[in-house]
Design a protein around this nucleic acid. Sequence first.
DNA 1: CTCAGTGCAAAGGATTTGCATGCCG
DNA 2: CGGCATGCAAATCCTTTGCACTGAG
Lengths: 145, 145
Amino acid sequence: MAVDLHETAASRLRDVDQRYTPNRRAVIEVLAVAPAPLTIPEIVMSRPGIPQSSAYRNLAVLEQAGVVRRLVTSDAFARFELAEDLTEHHHHLVCSVCGAVEDFSAPSGLERSIAKVMASAGRSSGFDAAYHRLDFVGTCARCAA
Amino acid sequence: MAVDLHETAASRLRDVDQRYTPNRRAVIEVLAVAPAPLTIPEIVMSRPGIPQSSAYRNLAVLEQAGVVRRLVTSDAFARFELAEDLTEHHHHLVCSVCGAVEDFSAPSGLERSIAKVMASAGRSSGFDAAYHRLDFVGTCARCAA
DNA sequence: CTCAGTGCAAAGGATTTGCATGCCG
DNA sequence: CGGCATGCAAATCCTTTGCACTGAG
């Protein structure tokens, strides 16, 4: 599985004429084991030696290659996670107090309902929906009053 | 209805020891008639005379008072809309090409399903969900290939 | 040899803040 | 009168970029 991940990443990078360098591999490794999307400082801290600018640049490349996805919450930093087809479809619990993000999987019944609605969503306005995003916003255990 | 809106806004501001000033009222008026969340430049442009810094400050206050909601897409600018209890619950169609955002209402059946899942979502991790966010991301009519 | 990736440092750009002034309460 | 809101300009801070260098093919 882990092998597949790196092979897939390398392959997608090749498709965009990019290499799978050690720095990029390191970023992927960090994201692969994280239980939630990470900020760039978090990624950099867990792999000392990678300069922030390289992290930013590599994540931009990886995003463009479809290997990672960039999330923006109302938090100061952007967050990154592996592209959905490399992990499992999931959603996020977002703490509105501290900005923490936690992964969460919805029942498949709900997913089917959402997919059905999405298919007909933009029909009138010509919007072509590619995927959906469902977040639950609230207070995490650590920030609970 | 419009009267209620401004009264409610004024009331919520008072709760936070803030005034309902002309600038703040102007911002609310712009948001009230917009068919989609607006960026600060858009708000400022539609009401010449409001300096950006005041717009930023007032929107921060209004957000804290629970009158407006701040949205962050992957777009460069944040977007603002009236708080949900002042409008109608709705979702967004987000264009991943140009960043445009369009309002969208989901069938009530889907809303009920989501609410049900939300109630049990963070049970294990102690996350207390307050509301949900459902976005459909794709390509808007103007950006269609 | 060539060219993409790297690292450092400097630039960019949305957002925030300090401070003096004006105005509502 | 006192204090909040305002405007201007300067500061912040995440993110991007210029440039010279290094390493893989």
